[in-house]
Amino acid sequence: MKYFIYILAIIILLGVNIGLFGNLPIRGQSPNLLLLLTVYFSVDKSSYDFYFIAFACGLFLDCFSASFFGGWTFGFLILALALHTLSSQLLVLELNWKSLALLVFGSFSLVSFCLWFYTWAALKAGAPGYGLGFNPSLADFVPALIYNLLLLYPMYFIYYRLKALIADFTIRSRGVVK
């Protein structure tokens, strides 16, 4: 049932991303709320739900984007693995405004690179379509990054409420009375 709640949350966030922020672009760019959600879940060491979040978010973005199918999912999975490894094995991450901003910057760069690489590899493998040029991608990078950073804390609040909802639901489903 919690996976159903995850899917519902992803659908609502995607709808808000396209319907609300899609009409308020900065230099033609809108934020990626699903990326922010994946980042927050990936640094959470308590469970492996972040893989499901990453896979589902990537799948939705693949359907809504014009790039080769699988690029966003691939990028999100790589990001999830990298962040989880970073948070659990290499660093003791304490989430504050500095680490969050750095995380989002690194994550955004990684996903952008993975997307470009996936498209390049697909074209090399003979798949029909067009590739993402590097120069246009760089031109879009900074406005999109700034927009994502602006929504850092609002999205963190949504992540926190979603986690609380899942935790509450999990406790109730186990029959534990508070």
């Binding site: 659908i11 995607l14 009409n23």
Partner: peptide, 11 residues
């Protein structure tokens, strides 16, 4: 199609 109601409301 699944996020369409939310998109329409937000737009």
């Amino acid at each position: 199609e699944s996020p369409r109601p939310v998109i329409i409301m937000a737009s």
